[in-house]
Design a protein around this nucleic acid. Structure first.
Lengths: 192, 192
DNA sequence: ACCTGAACACCGTTCAAGT
DNA sequence: ACCTGAACACCGTTCAAGT
């Protein structure tokens, strides 16, 4: 690997830690309200720090997005274990896909960041990206082993489906969520 | 309807027409190179006009996008007639869907503009939006009449599928086009 | 180690002045 | 009717100065 992605700066002083937390809280609120393109100046302002402090802790927008979605990713990975232990691998896969679309839709623009990361465009850290990929591969292969899911479906294609469904949700008008029906069509389409 | 979308200004003088054409040419090039978020200042500069002239002819970004994709839309509508006359309505639908994804992918960001237009968010003119919708409805209903396409699939959902596939294509890494496989999954999923 | 904020480059949009 | 470009507001990013 030539140039790995920048990572959020871990503070070593108490005031640094306080600012780090305040920025993360403000970022979560702003991303939720205005999507991944929320103004960094506004985030710094809401956190009560100068813009340089934000850049010190989070050198790129992607590091901030990753930190703001870390808990959601952990939760998704835990869910995969839980639903895998429960029983049928195909049911587990479809339940996990629905949950993954929720995660991809944490805020507007996240699906694009995640998909671009998988395709190597700067964006998120390799570790976060690899955790998610390994989880998806595991779910898919277990389901394919039953013979009821198309054997020629790749993990890359599975993640394309998830990103596409999340995109539909975030582009839909607020009232109606088009991703539910879309996911149903997809799940029907990946059966053998 | 409370407030209809602004439309491109039709020039009535020779110099106005020349500038209009130059802006449209420059816009097409810039949208192709940098997506629907291309810099309007750069477009004006490439067209050899001042920024105010661009705004005079195209009061919003959406009017410029619509003008830059007008030929593509006409071509898609013609294709629908051609393929409908050819024979099997299900084959016609699937062929048209593939072509529609091409149109949606004319440049990065167009799929989002089209989908938001359908959902009423400013964006494109009602006429362009209605033409596309009527065409999709016609293709879908003819295919559903054969009984081989799910009767509960709505036109709105069909357009969600198209937008999603186009999004995957524009988000994919340049080499590999993920929308081909995604479309295959979708077409499998909408069969009865 | 960390914070501040000025500085720079860039972009979208409007509008008064001019032909 | 049409064109120009200054003006304003906004945003991202860097970095010298300070604690």
């Amino acid at each position: 690997v030539t140039g790995r992605s920048p990572v959020a700066h871990r503070p070593r002083r108490a005031d640094g830690q306080r600012n780090y937390d305040a920025i993360l809280t403000a970022a979560t609120a702003e991303f939720t309200a205005h999507g991944s393109q929320a103004s960094l100046g506004e985030i710094a302002s809401q956190a009560g720090v100068a813009i340089g402090t934000l850049y010190r802790h989070f050198p790129t927008r992607a590091t901030l997005i990753e930190a703001a979605t870390r808990d959601g990713l952990t939760s998704l990975l835990d869910y995969a274990d839980k639903v895998s232990a429960a029983g049928d691998p195909v049911d587990a896969l479809t339940a996990w896909m629905s949950r993954a679309v929720d995660y991809f839709s944490t805020f507007r623009g996240l699906a694009q960041t995640l998909t671009e990361s998988r395709n190597g465009d700067n964006a998120l850290s390799e570790t976060a990206c690899a955790e998610l990929t390994r989880c998806g591969v595991r779910m898919l292969e277990a389901a394919q082993a039953t013979g009821r899911i198309r054997a020629d479906l790749t993990a890359e294609e599975l993640f394309d489906l998830l990103g596409a469904a999340a995109w539909v949700r975030e582009t839909s008008q607020p009232g109606h969520d088009g991703s539910v029906r879309l996911l149903a069509v997809m799940i029907a389409g990946i059966r053998s």
